[in-house]
Design a protein around this nucleic acid. Structure first.
Lengths: 109, 109
DNA sequence: TGGCTCTATGGCAATTATAGCATATATTGA
DNA sequence: TCAATATATGCTATAATTGCCATAGAGCCA
């Protein structure tokens, strides 16, 4: 059966942009750390062990994608998760990883 | 509160690799088209309107990530979705997009 | 005011991703 | 066998991503 894309090119690009924001290990660490709490850039920098400017840029990517929002308090910037559906992401990704592992092990036999 | 990453670096890289496979509009079109049915490369090529080799490479990316699997029948290759949790992905992404749109509209006022 | 801290940004180099062309491989059928 | 079709793979040019350094801006406090 042949098909046409159901949505516009722009729609798929917007969707891909969201997925792209999730497509970096450091940003996944950040999102997980922000699960249920806010943290400042300095603590996130300690957490991921990269340069502060690098962390700041990752946070900008997440913010641009609408995944997090920030709050300024004095000189500090506190970030928190803005979306509620990340749990489903993690579960799905873990499912895929488990499947891949299983398939890989089966292939070794 | 300070935190340490809950998982290993490799774990986050593996997760990011899955997300990365979803981070391209063409691959999203393909996955959506393969929702509930298998399709050959030729029809997918028509669908996305790119070079056949480009589509083949996108399919290789999705296959490598474990999102799709293929079946060879004669000279044809039929691909189908291998994971069951994509619906949650689409819904979450649409939720984020809707939130972003709302926030953007609010900002224009 | 001046120094200190925290965060964001500009710039650059290195790496990675992407697209299409050309081509290789494999299957089918005349 | 030969031609035609479907798919996969090198290859190259281009674009995007990433990390860190240097630095700018802003708040805080002596």
């Amino acid at each position: 059966m042949k098909r046409k894309p159901r949505h516009s090119k722009q729609r798929y690009e917007a969707r891909a942009a969201i997925a792209k924001a999730l497509a970096h290990p450091t940003r996944l660490i950040i999102l997980e750390a922000l699960d249920g709490q806010e943290m400042c850039v300095c603590d996130l920098t300690d957490l991921v062990g990269a340069d502060q400017s690098t962390v700041s840029k990752h946070l900008a990517v997440l913010k641009q994608a609408g995944m997090v929002e920030d709050r300024k308090e004095g000189v500090m910037a506190y970030y928190r998760v803005k979306v509620c559906c990340l749990q489903g992401f993690w579960e799905c990704i873990e499912t895929v990883l488990a499947e891949n592992l299983k398939a890989h092990q089966a292939m070794l036999k």
